[in-house]
Design a protein around this nucleic acid. Structure first.
Length: 571
DNA sequence: GCCGTTTTCGGCCCGACTGTTTTCAGTCG
C-alpha cells in the first residue's frame, strides 16, 4: 500500500469522524496526517516495521496504529467502525454549499435526513426553515445547492477518469484477442471533466472481448450491437466499442469527436468522395482501411489535428496550413505558483527546488500565501524576510535551479494587495488571487480585480474565476473586461493547473493570447508531487491553441529574469 | 488524535461573512 493510498483512507476517516465525533479536532488530526502523507514517497511498511511512524509530524500513536493495520491487512478497523455508522448518502449532503458538519448533524438528528433526496423533500416542504439555527434563506440556499450538485452527478475531473481509463486500456491491450485499443471521447480530447470513460478496441472476436470487458464490472452489462457498458464502482459508466480491425481507425476518430469537428470533417470528406460515419470511413459501399488517423486527415487535405483541438473552434479551416505548433510539456523550463511549508505546502524551499531540478527545470517561482490567508498560514512580513534569506542562500550556492521570490497576495475586497508597497517591492514578482468575498456582484468583482490589475506591482493574475470544478461555480466576473485590463497593464494571467481548478478556462485562453496576454502554466503545487499538475495545465494551453512562446514558463531563465526586472523598473 | 511543554493538560491556522439571532454560531477559504 503506497503512502498516497494510506493518505486517502486517513482523509476518509477524517471526513467520517467529522460527522460522528463531537470533537472536531480528532477529525482534523486525521486530515492533517493524510496531508502529511499525500504526495510523499515514504515507505510506510518499512517505517511501521521499525516502529518509526510517529517520527512523521502529525502522526502519533493512534494514527500510527491505524497505518500499521493498513500496511499489513490493507484496511483499518477504525475506518470500518466509522463507515458502519454513516449512511453513504450523507456524504452528498455534506457537499451542499453552506452545510457543514454541525448543520448536517442537526438535520440528521432532527429530521432523520440521510441523503440528498431526503433533504430536498424536507426543504421543499419547509421543514428545514423551522429548525433552530436554520431559516428561510438557508432553506432556499440548500435547494439551490442541491440543484447545483445534481448537475455535477455523474461527472468526474480529468485525472480521476483518466486513471480509470488507463487501467482499462492496459487490460484491453493485454487481452489476447485485442489487436489495438484507444481511449476516445472527451477524455481523449482532454476535457477538464467527463461523464464517461469511453474506449474502442480492434478485434476479430468482439463477442469474447465484450463479454470479458463487461465481466470486469461484476454486474449485468448493457449490450448493444458492438458495445458493452458497465458502471464503475464510483458511478461513472465505462463503455467499450469493439470493432473490426480494418475500421478501427475511422471509428476511433468518430468516437473521439467532437460533434462540430466531425460535421466539418464530413463536409470535406464528401468533397473528396469519402463518407465519414459512425461505422468508419467509407469509399463508395466499401469501408476504407486506414493505417492511422493522420492518414485520414491527409486524405482530406488537412494537417493532423491533435484530439485536444477537435472542438469545432476553427481547427478544420486552420488545418489547411495554419495550425499552431502547440506548446508541449517538454517546453517548460520552470513554473511560478508553488507553496512551501512556510505557508500551507508540505515541502521545504530546498525540497521544492530539488524537485524542480529532478524535472529538468532551470527555475522555480515560490509564491506562498500572504498574511490575510491566515487559514493557510499566510506569511507575516517577518516570515517573508526569513524566506528570502533562505532563498538568497540557495541561489548563492548556485545549485542549478534558480528560485524566484514570489508571493500569492490576496486581492482584498477593495482591490488592494495584501502588503504595503515596500514589502511588495521586495519580491521578484507578485501573483494576485481572490480568496474571499465571493458573493459580490459581477460589477463589484470585476472592478475589484481590475483595480488589482492596475497595481503596477501585480505580475500574474491567479485563478481568475475562482471556480472549483464540480464543487463551486465561478464567481460572477466579466472575464473579457479583466483580460482586456491585463493586456493593457501587461499583467500575465495564469492557467492554474490544479485539476480542481483549470482556471483560466481553455475557452478563454485563446482570447487572452490574441490580446497579447502572457500565460504562465502554474501548478499551484502544495507538495513536490504537486509540481506534476503542470501536465494538466499544458492540456488546457493546447486546447486554447497556445504556442510555446505565449507561455511564460517556456522562456529561459535569463528571459524571465529580464522580464521580471523590466516589470519592476516600470512599476 | 497530536503536540508541546512554564509536559501529562489544554489548546488546536484565524478572520470575515452570513443568517440567525437580538449577541453569536456555523461556514468558508
Amino acid at each position: 500500500m503506497t503512502a498516497s493510498e494510506v493518505a486517502g483512507i486517513l482523509a476518509e476517516i477524517g471526513r467520517l469522524a467529522e460527522l460522528v465525533d463531537p470533537n472536531p479536532f480528532r477529525a482534523r488530526a486525521y486530515a492533517q496526517a493524510a496531508r502529511a502523507l499525500e504526495g510523499s514517497d515514504l515507505d510506510l511498511a518499512r517505517l511501521a516495521h521499525a516502529d518509526h511512524l510517529t517520527s512523521i509530524p502529525g502522526i502519533g500513536p493512534g494514527i500510527a496504529q491505524a497505518i500499521r493495520e493498513m500496511v499489513t491487512t490493507g484496511s483499518a478497523s477504525i475506518h470500518a467502525e466509522l463507515s458502519a455508522q454513516i449512511p453513504a448518502g450523507l456524504y452528498a449532503v455534506l457537499r451542499v454549499p453552506g452545510l457543514g458538519t454541525k448543520k448536517v448533524r442537526t438535520l440528521r438528528e432532527q429530521l432523520g435526513i440521510e441523503s440528498l433526496d431526503d433533504l430536498e423533500r424536507a426543504a421543499a416542504e419547509g421543514q428545514v426553515a423551522g429548525l433552530s439555527g436554520f431559516g428561510a434563506k438557508t432553506e432556499q440556499k440548500i435547494l439551490q445547492g442541491i440543484a447545483f450538485l445534481r448537475t455535477t452527478l455523474g461527472w468526474r475531473r480529468y485525472p480521476d477518469a483518466l486513471a480509470t481509463a488507463v487501467r482499462l486500456l492496459e487490460w484491453l491491450r493485454g487481452h489476447p484477442a485485442v489487436g489495438a485499443a484507444e481511449i476516445v471521447g472527451g477524455l481523449r480530447r482532454r476535457m477538464e471533466v467527463v461523464n464517461a470513460v469511453e474506449l474502442v478496441a480492434a478485434s476479430g472476436q468482439p463477442e469474447q472481448v465484450l463479454e470479458a470487458f463487461a465481466a470486469l464490472g461484476g454486474v449485468r452489462p448493457t449490450r448493444r450491437v458492438d458495445r458493452a457498458t458497465f458502471m464503475l464502482q464510483d458511478g461513472l459508466p465505462a463503455q467499450l466499442r469493439c470493432v473490426p480491425v480494418e475500421r478501427f481507425v475511422g471509428i476511433t476518430a468518430w468516437e473521439t469527436g467532437g460533434e462540430v469537428h466531425l460535421q466539418e470533417l464530413s463536409v470535406r470528406a464528401d468533397a473528396c468522395g469519402l463518407r465519414l460515419t459512425a461505422d468508419g470511413v467509407y469509399q463508395g459501399a466499401e469501408p476504407l482501411p486506414l493505417p492511422a488517423e493522420s492518414t485520414l486527415y491527409e486524405m482530406l487535405g488537412l494537417e493532423y489535428v491533435p484530439p485536444e483541438l477537435r472542438e469545432g473552434c476553427g481547427e478544420v479551416v486552420a488545418a489547411t496550413g495554419a495550425l499552431p505548433r502547440l506548446v508541449k510539456e517538454e517546453d517548460l523550463r520552470g513554473t511560478f505558483h508553488c507553496h512551501t511549508s512556510y505557508s500551507d505546502g508540505t515541502a521545504s524551499v530546498a525540497e521544492m527546488a530539488e524537485a524542480a531540478r529532478a524535472r529538468g527545470w532551470s527555475y522555480l517561482g515560490l509564491a506562498d500565501h500572504s498574511r490575510s490567508a491566515g487559514y493557510a498560514g499566510g506569511l507575516s512580513v517577518a516570515a517573508v524576510a526569513k524566506q528570502h534569506r533562505e532563498i538568497d542562500a540557495w541561489n548563492r550556492a548556485n545549485r542549478g535551479v534558480h528560485i524566484f521570490k514570489g508571493v500569492e497576495s490576496d486581492i482584498l475586497a477593495d482591490g488592494s494587495l495584501d502588503y504595503d508597497d515596500a514589502t511588495l517591492a521586495r519580491f521578484d514578482y507578485v501573483v494576485g488571487s481572490v480568496h474571499s468575498g465571493f458573493g459580490m456582484s459581477e460589477r463589484e468583482m470585476t472592478d475589484r480585480v481590475i483595480r488589482a490589475v492596475r497595481n503596477a506591482r501585480l505580475t500574474i493574475l491567479a485563478h481568475p474565476t475562482g471556480r472549483l470544478l464540480l464543487t463551486r461555480d465561478a464567481y460572477a466576473i466579466d472575464l473579457r473586461a479583466v483580460i482586456d485590463a491585463c493586456a493593457e497593464h501587461r499583467v500575465a494571467v495564469e492557467i492554474n493547473a490544479d485539476p480542481h481548478r483549470l482556471d483560466l478556462d481553455w475557452r478563454h485562453v485563446r482570447y487572452a493570447a490574441e490580446r497579447g496576454v502572457l500565460i504562465p502554466i502554474n501548478p499551484d503545487a502544495h507538495s513536490t508531487r504537486g509540481l506534476d499538475n503542470v501536465a494538466f495545465g499544458v492540456n488546457m494551453a493546447r486546447k486554447g491553441w497556445l504556442q510555446a512562446g505565449q507561455v511564460l514558463n517556456t522562456w529561459t531563465l535569463e528571459e524571465v529574469e529580464t522580464y521580471f526586472a523590466d516589470r519592476k523598473q516600470n512599476s
